[in-house]
């Protein structure tokens, strides 16, 4: 591993300032992805600026909706009782992320900013229609998470910005959600995963939000399947159509973890199982 400097600013302002002045600097939060990349020499930063000493970044607030500090660890989410009560699908995904040791250091914002197509936290946050707040020295902006990802390792986060918060709308009593993940073993990167949130009224699907992981260049909202389901009654036929459309909509690749065909297949099966689950 190449040598690098390590700085630990105490405020967001200082963190943003440091990044501007030091060439080749990178922010680090949990480091569970970043350190691996540095060790593999995919990244060679001159300086790591840790965000872990900025207390407001790790806070979780319930305020009708929720504000999750980007530095909140996955274990922080799991241990937060109200958050779990309000957004169980978020916790279901959190529990499947890595190992206990990883969950204790990996952060929610880090999982998103790493922009992996398999990011476990992205899926429930996509179906919950979360927004993320991005802060630069000059300005702050809020954007829907669905617009955040731009490709593997790519997002709309610019180099002078820090993701500070993940914002959730108040939970709806009328919705039901589920998270499904397939790994080669239980503790694994997803080879295919799916989050599903639906609002049902009188056997009819009023609203559907679906996101799939590891089946495209980024965590993907399946808008076509959502449109297919919304307004329709849930039957064997519509489930089967959704399964087929989910399979067809995604664009996975073959790599050493799974083939394209298998990823497609699993997303279809999960689409069906997810619907069966939320519709009882």
């Amino acid at each position: 591993m190449r040598r690098f400097d390590y700085l630990r600013p105490k405020s967001l302002k200082e963190a943003l300032q440091l990044k501007k002045t030091i060439a080749g600097a990178k922010y680090i939060s949990g480091g569970t992805d970043l350190i691996v990349q540095i060790k593999n020499r995919e990244l060679q930063p001159t300086t790591l600026i840790s965000l872990r000493s900025i207390p407001e970044l790790a806070r979780i607030e319930i305020n009708g909706g929720a504000r999750i500090g980007a530095l909140a660890t996955i274990s922080d989410l799991i241990q937060h009782i109200e958050l779990g009560h309000n957004y169980p699908v978020l916790i279901a995904a959190a529990k499947r992320l890595g190992s206990l040791q990883i969950r204790n250091v990996a952060t929610t914002g880090g999982n998103l900013c790493n922009c992996s197509p398999s990011a476990d936290m992205a899926l429930p946050l996509l179906v919950l229609e979360a927004k993320v707040r991005l802060q630069s020295a000059k300005a702050s902006r809020e954007i829907p998470l669905s617009e955040f990802f731009k490709g593997p390792g790519k997002s709309c986060l610019s180099s002078d910005e820090i993701m500070t918060d993940i914002l959730l709308e108040p939970p709806s009593q009328k919705t039901k959600a589920t998270f499904l993940k397939k790994g080669r073993v239980k503790m694994d990167l997803a080879i295919a995963s799916l989050a599903l949130l639906v609002e049902i009224e009188g056997g009819r699907c009023r609203k559907a939000r679906i996101a799939a992981g590891s089946v495209a260049s980024m965590p993907l909202r399946l808008f076509d399947v959502e449109a297919l389901l919304e307004g329709s009654t849930i039957s064997k036929d519509s489930v089967s159509k959704a399964q087929q459309l989910a399979r067809d909509t995604v664009s996975p690749i073959t790599d050493l973890r799974a083939t394209e065909e298998y990823r497609r297949h699993v997303v279809g099966v999960y689409m069906k199982r997810g619907l069966e689950k939320v519709f009882g």
Binding site: R184, V185, K186, M187, D188, L189, L256, R257
Partner: peptide, 16 residues
């Protein structure tokens, strides 16, 4: 060797 790590070389853990 294309999976020289425990990320892509899977052994059973307690969960398996």
């Amino acid at each position: 060797i294309v999976n020289p790590n425990f990320r892509d070389y899977k052994i059973p853990t307690a969960q398996e």
